[in-house]
């Protein structure tokens, strides 16, 4: 047998047993190029740290406890904001999706406020709430709400008309139609909205931390700039990417598999 084919077969069996490995393999060439560019000193070392320096920086900041503390702050803020964002976005989306009157009354307002980007709120928020958690939470809630609302509306409207009808003719009162039919029917779209919302929210949070900053990954990066430490900036960027990958792969994707895909509402990828 062809040795390359043999290696491929070995690789396929191996990654089937440890799916985490399959997610890391694509990064091998990326890290290799990074390492090559850094060690050829195309750019001065102080401006363009290599993988080894970043790993050293990671160990150093973790050992000092700074990285875990900042990570906890950032993730905590994101969860708080996302929680409020869902608490507002899902009921609003269901209302707008179900009621033509609510749609007409609120849609122009929703579009108007969507157009004012989250970061555009920062100047006025800083005047109102100062440099603190309220300002950052507001920004995240603001970012999370719109994708959740839009996707919930879409989800509610994509429930086939015969399903609520079937429930009603089986004796379901109106509120049970909501909990038994509309909500589960819209769930795959709500998860999609949440996924988008969290992604945008995560980015908005970093931006807010850079400006508002007292702690957090965004603050870490901006603070490192002042000290001129390119290593810590790159480290911050890598943490952002890794953390998002973890949230998506370990939390959001399993929810999608357990709901929409299992029910045949969403096709498998």
């Amino acid at each position: 047998m062809n040795p390359a084919l043999q290696a491929w077969g070995y690789y396929a069996r191996w990654t089937a047993r440890w799916p985490g490995v399959a997610a890391l393999v694509p990064f091998i060439p990326v890290v290799a190029i990074w390492w090559l560019v850094a060690s050829l000193e195309v750019f001065p070392r102080a401006f363009f740290p290599g993988p080894a320096e970043v790993v050293r920086g990671f160990v150093d900041l973790t050992y000092k406890g700074i990285l875990p503390a900042y990570l906890e702050d950032s993730v905590g803020r994101l969860l708080l904001g996302a929680g409020f964002g869902m608490a507002i976005g899902i009921p609003l989306g269901i209302l707008v999706g179900l009621s033509q009157t609510a749609y007409r009354a609120t849609w122009p307002i929703i579009l108007f406020f969507q157009a004012i980007g989250d970061i555009a709120w920062l100047p006025i928020l800083l005047i109102w709430f100062g440099f603190g958690l309220t300002t950052m939470t507001f920004v995240i809630v603001y970012t999370v709400v719109f994708p959740v609302v839009f996707n919930t509306v879409l989800g509610v409207r994509s429930v086939p008309r015969d399903l609520p009808r079937a429930a009603l003719s089986l004796g379901a009162p109106r509120w049970r139609v909501l909990t038994e039919v509309i909500l589960p029917g819209a769930l795959p779209n709500i998860v999609t909205g949440l996924r988008n919302g969290l992604g945008y929210g995560w980015r908005a949070l970093i931006a807010a931390e850079i400006i508002v900053g007292t702690s957090g990954i965004g603050f870490l990066m901006f603070d490192a700039r002042r000290a001129g430490s390119a290593t810590e900036i790159v480290l911050g960027m890598i943490v952002l990417g890794l953390l998002w990958y973890a949230v998506d792969a370990w939390i959001l994707a399993p929810i999608e598999r357990a709901t929409g895909q299992r029910w045949g509402l969403v096709t498998r990828t």
């Binding site: 399903l163 009603l168 003719s169 089986l170």
Partner: peptide, 19 residues
Amino acid sequence: KGPGADRGVVFQSFALFPW
């Protein structure tokens, strides 16, 4: 007056709850 459990309906689209 409105839908009710006294009239069972079978739909062309089946209308089963996928979840």
